[in-house]
Design a protein around this nucleic acid. Structure first.
Lengths: 114, 114
DNA sequence: CCCGTATATGTAGAACTCCTACATATAATA
DNA sequence: TATTATATGTAGGAGTTCTACATATACGGG
């Protein structure tokens, strides 16, 4: 995850990071660093999830009760905080997806001059 | 455009307002109030373009050289500032659309777990 | 063995966009 | 006459993201 010299990636669409994190956690519990990797890889490296965005986001999600966390050990043997999505988090994810789709459709209509 | 009593509309996707305004202006020059109406109507009232978002955005766009403005008279006979998109603004719009599409595709890939 | 890179978490502060709320003014309508 | 719609604008706060920094360990190459 060294930043230096890597080509400039596009910014996250503001407001979508929480949705991407929650979605990533629906598959399995993951620690923060792995979540970031997942999102970067799945997005084909369009996104970079910066630490300064990631950890505050995870704190936000936990504070809202959408994820829980526990210290554990990563596959590489280092300490890592694993996050698990809650039932409430899954509901929230569903709502965020609906809202996102709705907004996307609206943007599309404006952009098509429909 | 009275806010009181109207049903809650969803927020704009942060960062997309400039694109929507520029797109609206590709058809014809419009004054701010009309731009807001256009976006609201075209979006099927999904969006509300607040004055506190609209006018700073227009100032931003003008400062960047993507629109120009002149005082004129609206169809209702009131003074209004008409905005015209510039060649530079059209190029910017093209770039914003490309970037938006790229980000959207990336989000889609993450959400599909592709 | 040492050094750089990857792994891993976190904070501080600035930038940016958006929202709420306010202020002002005129034309049209009830 | 009073309210609503039209029309522009500012001030201040909220929220998310980014840059930059701080810390620490594991691993691989030289």
């Amino acid at each position: 995850m060294t930043r230096s010299g890597s080509p400039k990636k596009s910014e996250l669409l503001k407001g979508t990071l929480d949705m991407l994190i929650l979605k990533t956690l629906t598959v399995q519990p993951l620690h923060g660093y792995a979540i970031a990797q997942q999102i970067e890889e799945l997005s084909d490296n369009v996104f970079t999830v910066e630490q300064g965005s990631l950890y505050p986001a995870l704190q936000r999600l936990q504070k809202s009760g959408w994820v829980t966390s526990r210290w554990s050990e990563s596959p590489t043997g280092r300490r890592a905080r694993y996050y698990t999505i809650t039932a409430s988090g899954r509901r929230q994810l569903g709502q965020e997806i609906s809202s996102f789709d709705r907004v996307l459709l609206a943007i599309h209509r404006v952009m098509e001059g429909a």
